[in-house]
């Protein structure tokens, strides 16, 4: 994989996240009658995100790409399950899962960004990364609102799951170890790793 593919996969990931995130907040607020309860759901998310970071940290350098895939797959699972949750306990469990995925994604994203850029010349790459992920997020939010008006928030969860799956597949595809069958042009991509 190289920076170009990192940007592609993470733009798809932000498309998935951006599509659901603001509406997910509304969805959560409807579950709890108080803002405190709603706040708690988010605290659980940050706790799991912070808790797993120590365990993940030493494995980051070697397994960054793998973590990215697992993170997207985990989010895909969470998105598929969300419409079926029937209790606040389940929501907290999913918040735990999503916090873990968030840690994997955020940490490996930073490591891979560093890996694929050189000290002294990182600006352009990181700028491009930020541009594409932000733009993807913008499109996602607008599309998300439109889709809920026409369909339901549940459909949005499933679409988001599909995009998370696609993002995982994009990363996996550009990193599979099938070097012998790789074409000339793509060798350089594999060499980066």
């Amino acid at each position: 994989m190289n920076l170009k593919w990192l940007i592609r996969s993470q733009s798809i990931m932000t498309l998935a996240a951006g599509m659901i995130y603001p509406y997910y907040l509304l969805f959560l607020k409807n579950l709890g009658n108080s803002f405190s309860k709603y706040g708690l759901a988010f605290a659980v998310f940050t706790i799991s995100s912070a808790a797993v970071s120590h365990w993940l940290a030493p494995r980051l350098d070697k397994h960054g790409v793998c973590m990215m895939i697992v993170s997207s797959l985990g989010m895909m699972g969470a998105m598929l399950v969300f419409p079926w949750t029937s209790s606040y306990g389940w929501v907290l469990l999913l918040q735990l899962l999503m916090g873990t995925c968030n840690a994997m994604q955020r940490m490996s994203e930073r490591v891979l960004l560093a890996d694929y850029t050189e000290p002294g010349s990182r600006g352009a790459g990181i700028g491009s990364y930020h541009f594409w992920t932000s733009v993807a997020s913008g499109f996602a939010v607008i599309l998300g609102g439109f889709l809920i008006d026409w369909l339901t928030i549940n459909i949005l969860f499933y679409l988001s799951a599909l995009l998370y799956g696609t993002s995982a597949w994009t990363i996996w595809r550009t990193n599979r170890p099938a070097v012998p069958r790789a074409k000339e042009g793509s060798v350089s991509e594999h060499n980066v790793l």
């Binding site: 541009f131 733009v135 913008g138 499109f139 607008i142 609102g145």
Partner: peptide, 13 residues
Amino acid sequence: MLLLLASLAFVQY
């Protein structure tokens, strides 16, 4: 791309 997003936002507005 940014222009497209901005125009889309404007249309929604």
